[in-house]
Amino acid sequence: MALQWFPGHMHKALKEIKESLSQVDILIEVLDARIPYSSENPEIAKIRGDKPCLKILNKYDLADPEITQQWQHELESQRGVFTVTTSSDKPVESKQILALLREHCPEKAASVKSVNAMITGIPNVGKSTLINILADRIIAKTGNEPAVTKSQQRINLSNGIVLYDTPGVLWPKLENPNSIYRLAASGAVKNTAMEFDDVGFFAADYLIKEYPELLKARFKLDEIPDTELEFLEAAARQRGAIMRGGRVNLHKICEVLLSELQSGKLGRISLETPDMVAQEKVEMAAAAEKKAADKAKRKQRFKEGSLTPEKRDRKEKRTEKREAQSKRMKKSRR
């Protein structure tokens, strides 16, 4: 899938995060509860060092609660990481974050000094809305599209906490190809940067396998077809996404499917599980190993096969001549 993944302004924002990190006591990373792995920035893990890290699984109301619990267990097995779930429909519960920050910074909690926390997250993960809830006022601009926050800002919260807000940043290279589709399906990238049909087929294939009953209920289907194309055609007929001549408008029904997935109208859905990601990592490692081995073989074949027998003889003769000439020059110097 063609995707404008890492614009120049994100490179600048990531650099600023690295420069400011030394000033903070604790790091907050806001994740999408539906895709905790795909929305987790690996660059943050590289630069945080020993600092404690609160991973907030936001949009919990849209995610499968059982799978979210699995992800919390998985994330908290990492050193220095603790988790909490939040959602915009229950702002009071988000207030627990302030107490958690002080709890995990005991040196500051026992003094009058402020706890300095930095909050990060990919675009459209709900970071700005969360900040406004914590601050009890409109501090960060919000919007239902990625990259609303453009620059860092320092915010004084209650309970002696200073929050460093950062722009939503992605990372230079996505290793897992499935993550591209999950990020697009969840709304983490702008609509102009994605191909609805491509992402729609990916989402349909996953939902048919993992949440068939939710699809049946939402699109009023007696049975769910076996393939994503057959499902999208059936859903299009139910929703009237038909063009002239009775042809199905696949682009339109893909837009509908993704919109209802992102808004939660389909139900509480998670797009990845810890077991699924673990298997994908094994497959990626095997693919990377094979790619490296193939590259080494090509390099060796090129090295061995670049010289024909005739060229090899000429090279050996040139080498012998140079060696003989070198010996003569050494004798003449004596």
Rank of each mutant, 00 (worst) to 15 (best):
K18P: 04
F6K: 01
Y181F: 15
P167K: 07
H11K: 12
S186G: 08
C254I: 05
E43W: 00
I155E: 13
K173M: 01
E16Q: 11
L21E: 10
G126F: 08
D136T: 07
T273R: 13
G8N: 06
G267E: 05
A296K: 11
T308Y: 12
Q153P: 02
L62A: 04
T273Y: 01
I133T: 14
P65S: 09
F202A: 11
R239T: 06
R298S: 04
I242P: 01
S128K: 05
P172N: 10
I67K: 12
E310H: 11
K46D: 12
K311M: 13
D64N: 14
N58V: 02
L257Y: 04
T142D: 02
R268Y: 07
E230K: 15
E316V: 11
G264D: 08
D64E: 02
S77A: 15
E29L: 06
R328G: 04
L229I: 12
A147Q: 12
R301N: 07
V84A: 09
I97Y: 14
P172W: 13
G126I: 03
V81L: 05
R328W: 01
D165T: 04
N178T: 09
K330M: 04
P225L: 09
K281H: 08
L21P: 05
K12Y: 00
R298Y: 09
K290G: 02
G187A: 12
T273F: 01
A235D: 02
D313H: 11
E316L: 15
V92G: 07
Y60P: 00
I26A: 05
E323K: 15
E40L: 12
K141Q: 14
K315W: 10
R244V: 04
S158F: 13
Q153W: 00
K327Q: 15
G305I: 06
T166Y: 01
C53Y: 06
A13I: 02
A63D: 10
D50G: 02
K51T: 03
F302Q: 10
W5I: 06
M194V: 15
N41M: 01
A185S: 14
E283M: 07
H9A: 06
A193N: 15
A117Q: 10
A217D: 14
P309H: 11
I139C: 05
V169N: 03
A217G: 14
G200W: 00
I35V: 09
N178H: 14
K330E: 04
V24T: 10
L157E: 13
R268H: 13
K46L: 12
H104Q: 07
A236D: 10
P7D: 04
F6C: 03
K18Y: 09
A109N: 14
D89Y: 05
D226E: 15
G49F: 09
N124F: 00
L54S: 07
Q96M: 08
L214Q: 14
I56C: 07
I208L: 14
G126V: 03
G168L: 08
V148G: 00
A236F: 11
K18H: 08
E16K: 14
N178D: 14
R79H: 06
V248C: 03
K95I: 03
S326I: 01
S158K: 14
N156A: 14
T129G: 10
A2G: 08
E93I: 01
K90H: 11
K290R: 09
R314W: 13
A286G: 03
E145G: 00
E310Y: 12
I17K: 04
L27T: 07
L214Y: 00
A63E: 07
Q238N: 12
A193Q: 15
Q300H: 09
G143K: 10
V30Q: 06
N249I: 02
R102L: 06
P42L: 08
N249H: 10
